[in-house]
């Protein structure tokens, strides 16, 4: 778009110069153009605009879709694993969402830069909808802007970009030792997910925690914690809101989880918490505090899961 506009401006300049040139005689003095000269100049002016716009439009880089991406978008037999969809704030809907086509075979392949992930609900948790801290991740990785049609194919048309914040933090994977509880199916994470929810209820109070999504089959929980104050950003007196995603993984007998946390804050002098729309993201301004808090929370959950399993 910018290139086209600059092309048009360039063409405009050329056309004006041409007009000037045609309106001067050989000795450099201005004279009135004849009718045919004027028509020729006008034709050339518009021709130059058209050509320069067309040339510059061609110069916009078009990334190719990778094989995985083609499978993801168009093939019915998509293999398992995690895929990252990155959401980049852009000018319009089409430019806002880009897909990060690297397939991730296990949780550790999930990019640590991806800041917010939740199952997109496409073909049973094979994709994680993520946002990135910057556009750096997607440069030269076989990506292209998603169109609305692509989103419909992915079943993401109902996942507005606003739902995920561009910024939040990932904690490193946390291993935990969990003895099998009598009657618990080791292949089933139902009890593990319930234990994790109990951890959040106990830690923040049942009224302040709402479970946004719970995917027992794939070991994923998203909880939102509201009505916090001075918890993450200590001594600032601000209201805080926290969304935590916990994703459980398994490597042989070893169990681990990875957590990400998205924090938001809002002002408010009284005891009434601000409406959810009043909150602003903590990143990048309070990145350190959010990261430190997420790490503390990770350790607490790690301890809780280990203890409760024994």
């Amino acid at each position: 778009m910018v290139a086209s506009v600059s092309g048009m401006i360039c063409g405009n300049h050329l056309g004006k110069s041409l007009r000037k040139l045609l309106s001067r005689n050989s000795s450099g003095e201005s004279r009135a153009m004849s009718g045919s000269n004027r028509r020729t100049a006008n034709w050339m002016f518009w021709f130059l605009i058209f050509v320069s716009a067309a040339v510059t439009a061609q110069q916009v880089p078009q990334a190719n879709i990778s094989q995985d991406a083609a499978k993801l978008l168009y093939g019915p037999d998509v293999i398992g694993g995690y895929y990252l969809v990155t959401i980049i704030p852009g000018i319009n809907d089409d430019a806002r969402m880009r897909i990060h086509f690297d397939s991730c075979r296990n949780l550790e392949d999930v990019s640590p830069f991806a800041s917010f992930a939740y199952p997109a609900g496409v073909a049973g948790f094979r994709y994680m909808l993520c946002t990135t801290r910057s556009e750096e991740l997607i440069i030269g990785r076989g990506v292209r802007p998603l169109t609305k049609a692509d989103l419909a194919k992915l079943g993401l048309q109902d996942a507005p970009p606003e739902r995920s914040s561009p910024y939040c933090v990932w904690t490193p994977p946390a291993r935990f030792v969990r003895a099998t509880v009598p009657g618990e199916d080791p292949a089933n994470d139902t009890l593990l997910v319930a234990t994790t929810i109990n951890f959040f209820y106990g830690r923040y109070g049942k009224d302040n925690v709402s479970v946004e999504s719970k995917d027992v089959e794939h070991g994923h929980i998203a909880v939102t914690i509201s009505n916090l104050r001075d918890t993450i950003l200590e001594r600032l007196g601000l209201w805080e809101w926290l969304q935590v995603n916990v994703v459980f993984g398994r490597r042989g007998e070893e169990r681990f989880f990875q957590m990400n946390a998205e924090g938001r804050y809002a002002s408010g002098a009284g005891s009434k918490p601000p409406p959810s729309t009043a909150f602003a993201g903590m990143e990048p301004q309070y990145h350190e505090q959010l990261e430190a808090y997420a790490l503390r929370l990770r350790t607490q959950l790690q301890d809780y899961l280990s203890i409760s399993g024994k």
Binding site: A269, G270, A278
Partner: peptide, 10 residues
Amino acid sequence: KALNLAFQNF
């Protein structure tokens, strides 16, 4: 605004 008694956002 300061007491969050009205307004959805700033």
